[in-house]
Design a protein around this nucleic acid. Structure first.
Length: 429
RNA sequence: CGGGGAGUGGCGCAGCCUGGUAGCGCAUCUGCUUUGGGAGCAGAGGGUCGCAGGUUCGAAUCCUGUCUCCCCGACCA
């Protein structure tokens, strides 16, 4: 991709409305544009990141055996009356009427809809267990949107729903998602702490929130510092993590005797990026979902639901990975693999070398943002650092004369001169 | 929803108190000089000052209403 033909409105100055670093950088790096309180347009570069985050989430859902589908954003109020939530949900739900005066809503979540669909499609125990998910826009009319996409009103969310014949099956479905979540956040370059969440009337340990630790997090988390030592590559990691203490401040304070010795109790701020819970027959019962069991009886399936804030993750990733110059994308979500800077667009040798490198890298399957603008070096370096692509290749007249380019690693800042061939080899390995 | 703040060109701001027909920096466009970490000089374009009423010879400025956005707190992927 040639930057001269792209849309990348970077800003040198920080917009006054943005308070936290991820919001500031998303605006400055030309990823998003606010269109109303808590509602954002995704500019080309931001959309690429959003799609890549969704891809990582999708890959781990698929690996865990969940099945992708897509439900609409607009739902009928009737559906929500079946569960009783149309009246219970409160002003957070955006209610609208169609031309016929029918009550509709912009979905804040999809339990009712998936339960109704499953109810109408599935009649036999043979079709269970199943876990279905979709990645779709949601709307919650937050009292106070803030922190950019971290607490927007419109947001992209992956929500999955499991259906099982019995408690043991439900627990297995839950465990599979728990593991999938650990893998997902690790693949995004994040370390997430699973925090036990209140389960309401069901009890047990079947609800967890996943928090990314960051000073700008909205919640306060207490946890056993032994969590830091758990190797996520270890197959027993999920079990180990679930046995270690971790609670949100509000819950922690209710506990008389904390099971963690004071010297091991860590307190950090966290960004909630995922929440999973098992709620049994709450919706299946209300919506009349029943399947016939092997013995001919009618059974009400047990359900769980599993959310990941896809758009929120973009903010969380930036909070966790940036420096003074800008964003540092993990390779798994970076909008492009490589930023290619031509320092002298007017120099035929430089232009030829830069275009050749771009072509070769793209032919090898790497995505490249080639800064071929007629601008000075300093501006190009600053732009590249701001948008945070993992690798930068700098093509300049001195290097080209000597047959070399400069390769820079964004995360460490280290750079060195190397032949074009060796840079190609390194980046396409 | 309570408390506070702000709306002036794409971004950051000044002007408002003490009304006289809009200004600065960045960005943008043109030309020349430059070219390895956000260049210099010269010139140019772009704003019904959130909106609606009112006061006045005259309103960005004063008055009233209204909309929007931001911050702090209580609530949430």
């Amino acid at each position: 991709m040639l930057l001269s033909r792209y849309l990348l409105p970077v800003m040198k100055e920080t917009p006054a409305d943005a308070q936290i670093v991820s919001h500031q950088m998303m605006l400055r790096a030309g990823l998003v544009r606010q269109t109303a309180a808590g509602i954002y347009a995704w500019l080309p570069l931001g959309l690429r990141v959003l799609n890549r985050i969704a891809s990582v989430v999708r890959a781990e859902q698929d690996r865990a055996g969940a099945i992708e589908m897509l439900m609409p954003t607009i739902q009928s109020a009737d559906l929500w009356r079946q569960s009783g939530r149309f009246d219970a949900y409160g002003p957070e739900m955006l209610r609208i009427k169609d031309r016929g005066g029918r009550e509709m809503l912009y979905g804040p979540t999809n339990e009712e809809m998936i339960t109704a669909i499953f109810r109408d499609c599935v009649k036999s125990y043979r079709d269970l267990p199943r876990t279905l998910y979709h990645i779709q826009w949601k709307f919650r009319d937050e009292v106070r949107p803030r922190f950019g996409v971290m607490r927007g009103r419109e947001f992209l969310m992956k929500d999955a729903y499991s259906f099982d014949m019995d408690e043991a099956g439900g627990r297995a479905s839950y465990d599979a998602m728990f593991t999938a979540y650990l893998r997902t956040f690790a693949a995004l370059g994040l370390r997430a702490v699973p925090v036990r969440a209140p389960t309401g009337p069901i009890g047990g340990d079947l609800s967890h929130e996943f928090h990314i630790l960051a000073d700008t997090g909205e919640s306060e988390v207490f946890f056993d510092s032994a969590l830091d030592d758990v190797d996520l590559g270890d197959p027993d990691a999920p079990a180990k993590l679930r046995n270690l203490y971790a609670m949100e401040a509000e819950e922690h304070e209710k506990i008389a005797d904390c099971p963690v010795p004071a010297e091991r109790l860590a307190k950090r701020r966290g960004i909630e990026v995922g929440h999973i819970f098992f709620f049994g027959t709450k919706y299946s019962q209300a919506m009349g979902l029943q399947v016939q069991a092997k013995d001919g009886s009618q059974v009400t399936p047990l359900m769980g639901s599993y959310g990941v804030g896809v758009s929120r993750l973009m903010g969380a990733i930036i909070e966790a990975s940036h420096d003074d110059a800008g964003i540092i994308w993990p390779e798994s979500v970076s909008p492009f693999d490589i930023g290619l800077i031509n320092l002298r667009v007017d120099d035929p040798a430089c232009a030829a070398a830069a275009h050749a490198l771009q072509a070769k890298l793209e032919a090898a399957g790497r995505t490249v943002l080639h800064d071929d603008r007629d601008a000075r070096g300093g501006e190009k370096f600053a732009t590249m650092d701001l948008i945070g692509l993992p690798w930068q290749i700098v093509v300049g007249p001195k290097g080209v004369a000597a047959g070399t380019v400069e390769l820079k690693r964004r995360s460490s800042g280290e750079k060195h001169e190397a032949s074009m061939e060796s840079v190609m080899a390194k980046l396409t390995a």
